[in-house]
Structures are given as C-alpha cells and as structure tokens.
C-alpha cells in the first residue's frame, strides 16, 4: 500500500525532490561543443542524424556557455586556447559537467610539444574521459551515459555544484 492509494484518484505519484530533479537534469543535458580539431568531426557526427544524440535527450547544442551544462572538450588545446577554455568553463552556470573527448584533450595525444596542453584536467575538472583518436560516436554516447549516471547519483542540493 503506497501513499498513492491514500491520496486517491489518478494522476499522482510519489517521489523525492532529489530524484525528480536529477531525472530532469540528466535527460535534458545541454551540451556546449568545444571542438578544436579532428575529434570535433566525430562529435558533429554524434549530434547529427545517424548517431542522433537526441535519443538521449542531449540534442540542444548551445554555442553560448551561459546556456549549457555539459562542456565537451573535443580536440587539441594549445597554450593560447587554454585560458579561453577556462573562461568558458567559468561562464557556464552551475551545475555543470565536463567530457574530455579524445587522446589530445585527455593527455596531449601524440603531440608532446611545447605548445600543447598535456591534458586539460590539469587545469580544470573533468568528469568523464573518452579514449580514442578519434573516439567513435558510440564512445561519446557512452560517455554521455556515464555523465547521466553521475548526474543521477548527485544530491542536487549537496553544494558540490553550488546548488
């Protein structure tokens, strides 16, 4: 006997605020694509019809960080680009999550040179890494599923994301 039967009638369900907020958040992620190199091509493929990220509720791609809550860093980040990336990360409203897509964003890849950041996670938080050079769209979708898991397990009022 649940609470539903006491409330009586149809059109009611019981849940916690936490789970309903998380349910909403994780199924409506708004990605901000930060594509700086070849990985961005795979990211675009993921967004478009064939792989269709909208099946997972993340199709509202925003090119303004103010309107996004998922930053997808896909591509090489150079010395000149890192401050820009940090600025964009700061401009995103809380709560926010970051995917580091591809070998270059995660560790510099093969470009172990003077101009390339050897992993953006040295200078900003990263939630999910996607291995590959470039990762296939399936991998990015898998990363999205991982992000959804993370979002679902959060306490939305924990203060971790500023609440």
């Amino acid at each position: 006997m649940g609470l539903e039967s006491l409330i009586g009638g149809e059109g009611f369900l019981t849940t916690t605020v936490n789970s309903i907020v998380n349910w909403g958040r994780k199924n409506a992620l708004w990605p901000m694509p930060f594509g700086t190199a070849c990985c961005a091509i795979e990211m675009m493929a993921t967004f478009s019809g064939r792989y269709d990220i909208s099946r997972f509720g993340a199709e509202v791609v925003r090119f303004s960080p103010r309107q996004a809550d998922l930053l997808i860093v896909s591509g090489r980040i150079s010395l000149k680009m890192m401050p820009v990336l940090q600025k964009i990360y700061r401009q995103m409203p809380e709560p926010k999550w970051v995917i580091s897509m591809g070998a270059c964003a995660s560790c510099g890849g093969v470009f172990d040179t003077y101009t390339l950041i050897q992993g953006v996670d040295q200078f900003m938080p990263v939630d999910v890494y996607v291995p590959g050079c470039p990762p296939r769209p399936e991998s990015l979708l898998d990363a999205l599923a991982e992000i959804q898991k993370i979002v679902g397990e959060d306490r939305f009022d924990s203060g971790k994301h500023g609440s």
Binding site: Q86, E94, T113, Y114, F123, M124
Partner: peptide
C-alpha cells in the same frame, strides 16, 4: 627544447 621550458604548466587549476 621540443617540450618547451615549462610553459605548458603555467595555468592555474580552476576548481569549483
């Protein structure tokens, strides 16, 4: 040097 002279580590770490 190919890997630079430490410029790659010059940024602050931004954390919430």
């Amino acid at each position: 040097p190919l890997r630079g002279m430490g410029e790659r580590r010059q940024f602050p770490n931004v954390v919430p």
